[in-house]
Design a binder for these strands. Structure first.
Lengths: 131, 131
DNA sequence: TCCTTGCTTAGAGTGCACTCGAAGTCAGTA
DNA sequence: TACTGACTTCGAGTGCACTCTAAGCAAGGA
């Protein structure tokens, strides 16, 4: 990590794309792609034109990571991002979107667990020695 | 469902591809594709050359459905299928394969639950009215 | 007779989420 | 001086799991 990253506020822009790639597990290509499609605000630039991401950018990427890890499609993440950009008037709608997504994730977990039972049963059968 | 489906043994072949499609939720196209790539044994044929699936075929498809629903890639399902075809000598290996898969699924569930906590937190924040 | 459902092969198309390549430039570091 | 890593556009490629089309034919039911 760069020395410049040791101090500073949430909005101070200091991480290079390479550093952010390492921290988030996304590739530099993907970060630029996120920016291009609108998932990510255009980050600050250094005086040489290189991207410099802030703590706030990292936080946003981490949240996108949560959505992604729970299987939200990019199109829905984009919708959410646009609501955030649209300001406080969209808070209720954002909340509903997250709640609907949570329901889907819960349903997926239940589904996985149900299917897991069948797997367990099959594994048990193999543990004995018929069929 | 056809009348012919009312009685008969596990190995009696009686379901048309359309009936199987309806029962499994897979399309007729996909069923033929499964057969072509080796996920499914060639089913019996009627005297006119049409596929006639047995109860046993349906059972196998249901099990494949479990694997699929837990996110097993087709390549791994194929590996498992080949082990089944190879006979009883592969039972230990099949069991290990299923156990390894179960571990992955459990890990995925844990991961979903962890990410869900963040979502819950965010939803809570929206429930109040800051940030 | 017409409609539905089935059959065949081989290949193309779909949707998602990246992922990479080309091709050239620029800045900082060892 | 050489190397590394950043920059640009933008289109093509990847991998997965289907999904469909074409084109023509056959059987069964209303």
């Amino acid at each position: 990590m760069s020395q410049a990253a040791v101090v500073g506020s949430e909005f101070e822009a200091r991480y290079t794309i390479g550093e952010v790639a390492e921290r988030t597990g996304l590739s530099a290509h993907t970060l630029r792609w996120y920016e291009r499609i609108g998932l990510l605000d255009h980050p600050a630039r250094s005086h040489h034109g290189q991207r410099r991401f802030s703590e706030a950018d990292l936080g946003w990427l981490a949240f996108l990571g949560n959505l992604r890890a729970t299987g939200m499609p990019v199109a829905a993440m984009l919708r959410y991002t646009e609501l955030v950009r649209a300001g406080d008037g969209t808070r209720a709608e954002r909340r509903e979107l997250l709640i609907a997504h949570r329901e889907e994730v819960l349903a997926r977990i239940r589904d996985l667990q149900a299917n897991l039972l069948v797997l367990d049963y099959k594994i048990d059968l193999y543990g004995q020695d018929c069929q």
